[in-house]
Nucleic acid binder design. Structure first.
Length: 436
DNA sequence: TCTGGGGTCCTAGGACCC
DNA sequence: TCTGGGGTCCTAGGACCC
């Protein structure tokens, strides 16, 4: 009997499948000569390292280290740097997910390189969870060329921890099942693992926990969930339960619509003029509006923000934002751009060197379907006049609406639309795309 | 001038994640 | 000279209402 399952709370079993050094591994799939070569993938403008190969991690290079700061090291060790190619990574990510879906339908895509799987329902096809993990690992490698590690546990947090162990310690050969581990061994691993490695315990919480002599994962396991709640709130309480194998975080199989959408970017060179900022803001609004439409949302407010370079504290700093509520929520690029530029004018100040600008859409709502009311108050004179008027009206609000409309166009149709049903009513529906 | 309690909504900021 | 771009959740405090 495993240590963790003794709570008897649940038989759920989670697997976390995580691609090793994802961006680096993607690049290596298409350039096998890079295998074993120390390398990084750089962020926008080739600013920071956003992915590091194992060789580079071993040199002590931290995530998001600026490339210019590691150039000496790069020369010494022959570190190769690649600009990022997010289209490629997105495509590779989808391929991995497709493979994982062949193992279980219960899957949550957690990030571009990680998925949680619920596996207890499909285990009978395998000798044990670890061998299932091994098969997953091999299949992803064979099919996509990407190396993954698999962590298995009775909660998401334990699966995460198991994945960490699988990545960090060679003896697991890339697959670690915490659930099957004897208690003594598990506690030993937990004692050797710093509390900051636990999913949800970041820098600040680590510091506070350490002040209470909670240094290792095991120490945190020993602390009571109640006392954790008292001192740190519900988040740490939940982690505390999760570590005990009491699953508090469910699989989110359908990704909920975003609650906010951001588009922002650093400038390669400092930007000073209103014209440059306006161009950037317009680009970001267009990108954001595409994302909005992609999830069938409209935004009720947009925030424009820009800032100078915080890494140059001796230069004059300007960090400003303005939020513009929209009386009429929209996903129309033109309308949003107009509002955004108005906001930009409010906060722009000449004389600063801006380093970053962007836009955030918030107060998102489902995009309304074509509204009854648009038709209700129209007199029935003829189909085309109606449609033109309705389309104009909708177009002015949503810009890119797809209007479902009745093509039979008899008076009865319109009466039915306003609730006055005719028994013989039949109609066909067409989708009329409206020009953007 | 003193004096209540409870609820909701909104916002800002902090902490975390990849 | 060169320093990422997204997201989420939680909490506290203020405004407002009854």
């Amino acid at each position: 009997m495993s240590a963790i399952n003794q709570s008897g709370q649940t038989n759920q079993l989670f697997a976390l499948v995580d691609v090793n050094n994802f961006y680096v591994s993607c690049e290596r799939v298409f350039a096998p000569k890079l295998e074993g070569v120390p390398m990084v993938v750089l962020s926008n403008n080739d600013g920071c390292a956003v992915a590091r190969s194992a060789e580079v991690k071993a040199l002590g290079v931290k995530m998001a280290t600026p490339w210019f700061q590691m150039k000496d090291l790069a020369r010494q060790h022959g570190i190769q740097a690649y600009s990022s190619n997010y289209t490629l990574y997105g495509d590779m990510s989808s391929r991995v997910v497709e493979i994982l879906k062949t193992f279980t339908p219960n899957l949550e895509v957690y990030s571009i390189d990680e998925s949680f799987l619920r596996i207890e329902t499909v285990l009978k096809q395998y000798a044990d969870p670890a061998s299932m993990g091994q098969i997953i690992k091999d299949k992803v490698k064979d099919t996509t060329g990407l190396p993954v590690c698999v962590g298995i546990g009775a909660s998401k947090t334990l699966a995460k921890l198991a994945n960490h162990l699988a990545k960090k310690h060679k003896q697991f050969a890339g697959v670690c099942d915490i659930n099957a581990m004897p208690k003594e061994a598990l506690y030993q691993w937990m004692t050797e693992t710093p509390v900051g490695e636990v999913w949800g315990i970041g820098r600040q919480l680590s510091k506070k926990l350490k002040a209470l002599h909670i240094n290792s994962v095991f120490d945190l396991l020993q602390a009571s969930p109640q006392s954790m709640r008292q001192q740190f709130g519900v988040v740490v309480e939940r982690i505390s339960y999760e570590l005990r194998g009491v699953s508090c975080l469910e699989l989110e199989e359908v990704a909920p619509a975003k609650q906010q959408i951001v588009s922002s970017r650093s400038f390669g060179k400092p930007v000073t003029t209103m014209e440059q900022l306006a161009e950037s803001v317009a680009t970001h609004v267009a990108r954001g509006a595409e994302k909005l439409r992609g999830q069938q949302s409209v935004t009720g407010a947009l925030t424009i923000f820009m800032q100078t370079n915080p890494h140059k504290p001796f230069e004059p700093q300007h960090h400003q934002s303005v939020t513009i509520p929209l009386s009429d929520p929209s996903d129309n690029t033109l309308r949003l751009t107009t509002a955004a530029l108005k906001g930009l004018k409010q906060i722009y100040q000449a004389g600063f060197k801006y380093k970053k600008a962007g836009v955030m859409f918030s107060l998102l709502a489902d995009k309304p379907t074509v509204q009854q009311s648009l038709f209700d108050d129209m007199e029935v004179k003829g189909k085309s006049a109606h449609l033109m008027k309705a389309m104009d009206s909708i177009n002015s609000r949503f810009g890119n609406a797809v209007i479902r409309t009745a093509v039979s166009g008899t008076k009865q149709d319109w009466q039915m639309r306003s609730g006055n049903r005719s028994p013989n009513y039949t109609t066909q529906w067409d989708e009329l795309p409206v020009a953007r």
